[in-house]
Amino acid sequence: MPGGPGLLTIGEFARRCGLSVRALRLYDRIGLLRPAEVVPGTGYRRYSARQLYAGRLIALLRRLDMPLTEITAIVGTPGPDAAGRLAVYWTGVEQRLAAQRELADRLVRNLAAETPVADEPWDVSVRDVAEQRVLSELRYVTAPELGWIRDATARLTAQAGQCGGPVGPRFVVFHGDVNEDADGPVEVCVPVRSGTAGRVEPAHREAYIEVIKGHFEPPQILSVYDAVRRWVHDHGHTVVAPPREVYGHPTTPDAAAPGDLVCDVALPFR
């Protein structure tokens, strides 16, 4: 049906905006782009030519895969403020894409050099760890932010150098789950001589598995954590402290070959 004076049918408006009729009906329901007129009795939607700009803007923003909630905010915001809001949104997109690109590159490298992870048997060992004083930093970080561990290690090692230097292998305690949504917290610890600053790490017995570079990155290392927890449970022990990675091997993860030992995944128990 033709529109009234100065008004466009939904089909004509959709064609000129580059949107679908179905999308326009959705945008009406959610308040993003309401028609200028709804014909009584028939429910036909009519749009003003002045709404073409908003319709075309919506079509372009959808090509950026922008959520409708964000599009609604931009369309309803005056020009300069809308531009600023769009710039902030796109900066966030680029940061997320950069993080995803880094993850994809790391997975490609890991899979290319992957050492197969066997479910059984795992070589689980047990050791007693004496009480020790440690310098530590604790922070809430998600998986994409774990690069903080490297920076914290450098700061703590430098601080330890002012009181005689580290006296044992550094270790990283995971006080909670760490993934895309969970943020630990994570604590980096460097042992130092007694009587200096820091906190006391209690003496304990721990089960541990030595980890090679080929098993160091997720998802492989998660299977190692599972194996240590399973060993503790199957042997009737009780976990007394969070799991940790102990870096007592001569090769660092960054410099290691796939078969080199890089750390121990350990779990304190009694």
Rank of each mutant, 00 (worst) to 15 (best):
Y44I: 00
C263T: 12
L146N: 06
T153G: 15
Q100L: 14
T42G: 00
P80I: 07
P40E: 01
V93P: 00
V232G: 01
A73Q: 12
I209A: 08
Q132A: 07
L86Y: 08
G184V: 02
D234A: 15
F13M: 03
M66C: 06
P121L: 02
H235I: 08
S223T: 12
P242S: 14
N179W: 08
R155G: 10
V192W: 06
L33M: 09
T9Y: 05
V178D: 00
V192C: 05
L103Q: 14
G3P: 01
S223I: 08
E137G: 07
R16K: 14
A207G: 00
F216N: 11
H233M: 13
V188K: 03
V88Q: 09
D181V: 15
A158E: 13
P243G: 10
R46F: 13
A207L: 02
L267G: 00
M66W: 07
A87T: 06
E70F: 00
V232R: 02
G92A: 07
T196W: 08
A82R: 03
V172N: 04
P218K: 10
V38S: 06
P166L: 01
P202G: 02
A23W: 10
E206Q: 11
T42I: 00
F269K: 06
S223H: 15
I212S: 09
R139P: 05
L57S: 11
R109K: 04
T77R: 05
Q159Y: 05
D254H: 14
Y47E: 01
A266Q: 08
T77V: 05
A130K: 02
V75Y: 12
V239W: 03
R109E: 07
L32R: 05
V240I: 15
V39R: 00
F13E: 04
I30P: 03
L52G: 05
G248T: 04
L64R: 06
L8P: 01
G168R: 04
G31V: 03
P191C: 01
A152K: 11
R230Q: 08
E217W: 11
V178H: 03
A227D: 01
R193F: 10
W122M: 13
P2I: 13
G259C: 09
A152P: 14
R96N: 12
P78R: 02
L8G: 02
D28L: 03
L68C: 04
P169A: 02
I209T: 04
R244H: 09
V124P: 04
E187P: 04
V21L: 10
R96L: 14
L26W: 06
V246S: 04
P219R: 14
S48N: 06
G198E: 03
R170G: 13
G164I: 09
L138P: 10
V172C: 07
A143V: 05
L52R: 02
D264S: 13
I209F: 09
S194V: 14
R150A: 15
G55K: 03
V228I: 08
A54M: 10
D81N: 08
R193Y: 11
R199K: 12
R229M: 09
L24R: 05
D105Y: 04
